[in-house]
């Protein structure tokens, strides 16, 4: 009985903590779906900012592991010393912050074509290589880092033209985190989230 308990605990531990193996085709299809959803968002009229934001938030919640991303961005030390409640607050505010960033940077639909090129599995992650081709702008390359932490496939980072979302945000938050801690960062993000909607590129 004791042994069964241990085996059961071990299995639970494996399920909870270890990333699950990823199938290349699944990861590929997962990113294709993200691309299709993103194109749909681009096609929403720019005047309907609320709908754009809502759809983007849905996309983030469905396809991105936002609490995990928020945790990595805070870093080990800050996360360790943050209560669950405060982390939840930060995670929610951070999500709104990301929605604000991408709803303002995503632009409008001008014939962009999203293509998934190939997928590589490395350790516990899938790296999905994609591009956005546009008649008016140079091609943008995006690499998606996908992991399954027991909640299905989720994006844990994306790299646009060599620039990682995770790393950029970590650097962006570093000074405030160092000087004012997580409370200062939460306050700053809260006030930034209150700012009026930004102008969308291509909305001339």
């Amino acid at each position: 009985m004791r042994k069964i308990k241990i085996i059961f605990t071990l299995l639970m531990c494996l399920v909870i903590n270890n990333a699950l193996a990823i199938n290349e085709n699944d990861a590929n299809q997962f990113v294709v779906d993200i691309g299709n959803q993103a194109i749909k968002i681009l096609k929403i009229p720019v005047d309907d900012k609320d709908k754009r934001k809502k759809e983007l938030q849905n996309l983030l919640q469905e396809k991105f592991d936002m609490p995990f991303i928020a945790r990595i961005i805070l870093g080990k030390e800050v996360f360790k010393n943050t209560s669950e409640e405060k982390f939840k607050k930060f995670s929610d505010i951070f999500e709104i912050h990301i929605v604000k960033i991408y709803s303002s940077q995503l632009g409008t639909y001008k014939g962009q074509k999203f293509t998934v090129k190939n997928t590589e599995i490395k350790k516990k992650d899938a790296f999905v290589y994609s591009s956005i081709e546009s008649p008016d702008f140079p091609t943008t390359n995006i690499v998606w880092r996908v992991r399954d932490l027991g909640k299905g496939l989720k994006v844990i980072d994306m790299q646009v033209e060599g620039v990682s979302l995770l790393r950029t945000k970590r650097n962006d938050f570093k000074m405030v985190l160092d000087s004012q801690g997580i409370d200062g960062l939460i306050m700053t993000l809260e006030s930034m989230n209150q700012l009026p909607d930004l102008k969308i590129p291509g909305d001339n």
């Binding site: 912050h97 604000k100 960033i101 303002s104 940077q105 950029t168 650097n171 962006d172 938050f173 570093k174 000074m175 405030v176 960062l185 700053t188 993000l189 930034m192 700012l195 930004l198 102008k199 969308i200 590129p201 291509g202 909305d203």
Partner: peptide, 18 residues
């Protein structure tokens, strides 16, 4: 990059670091 740079500044906690 008119909107992109302006938006990047508006959504950065520390624009210099970004």
């Amino acid at each position: 990059n008119l909107e992109k740079i302006d938006n990047l500044e508006a959504t950065s906690v520390d624009f210099y670091a970004t």
